[in-house]
Simulated assay, not measured.
Amino acid sequence: MKHEEHRLGVSEVNLVVRHLKIEANSVDTVPAAVEEIDKVYGLDSVSFDKQTLVLNLAYDATRTCLDGIEALLSKHGVEVSHDWWTRFKEGYYRFVDENIQDNAKAEPWSCHEFTSGQPQRKRK
């Protein structure tokens, strides 16, 4: 398995990649927003393609989420596209982000008994 270097606070297990289309009237303010988003803890990479108007993000979903990134975009006056496909993807991205965060907080469990010689773990 190939090991890639990631930024501080980014675990490859929880790494997600997102692609958001941006409204054409917001293109002028995107560079400032990208610069601020690039400083977010847990973000691995961010880029903007001017030709397709797509913002590409890779981040650790246990450290940050789509809502926080969209808040920074709106702070700079950048609007995410309102077309049905982008809105559909946003809903799916939010669902997956929330699922990853919930799974990271959950205590692992097993319905199998421990075999002799292994320490017993007390349940709360």
Rank of each mutant, 00 (worst) to 15 (best):
M1P: 12
H3L: 14
E5D: 09
H6P: 00
G9N: 10
E12H: 14
E12P: 10
L15M: 09
V16R: 10
V17G: 00
V17H: 08
R18F: 01
H19V: 05
I22M: 01
I22N: 00
D28W: 01
D28Y: 03
T29A: 14
V30N: 03
P31M: 09
A32Y: 04
A33S: 10
V34W: 05
I37P: 05
D38S: 15
V40W: 02
D44M: 07
V46R: 08
S47V: 02
F48N: 05
D49A: 03
D49L: 02
D49R: 02
D49I: 00
T52F: 02
V54C: 03
N56D: 15
L57H: 06
A58D: 03
A61Q: 07
C65A: 12
L66N: 11
L66T: 13
G68N: 14
L72W: 00
V78L: 04
V80R: 06
S81L: 03
H82P: 04
W84Q: 12
R87S: 13
K89V: 03
Y92F: 14
Y93L: 11
V96M: 09
V96Y: 12
N99Y: 09
I100M: 09
Q101S: 14
A104F: 11
K105V: 06
W109P: 02
S110H: 08
T115G: 09
Q118C: 03
P119V: 09
Q120A: 11
R123P: 01
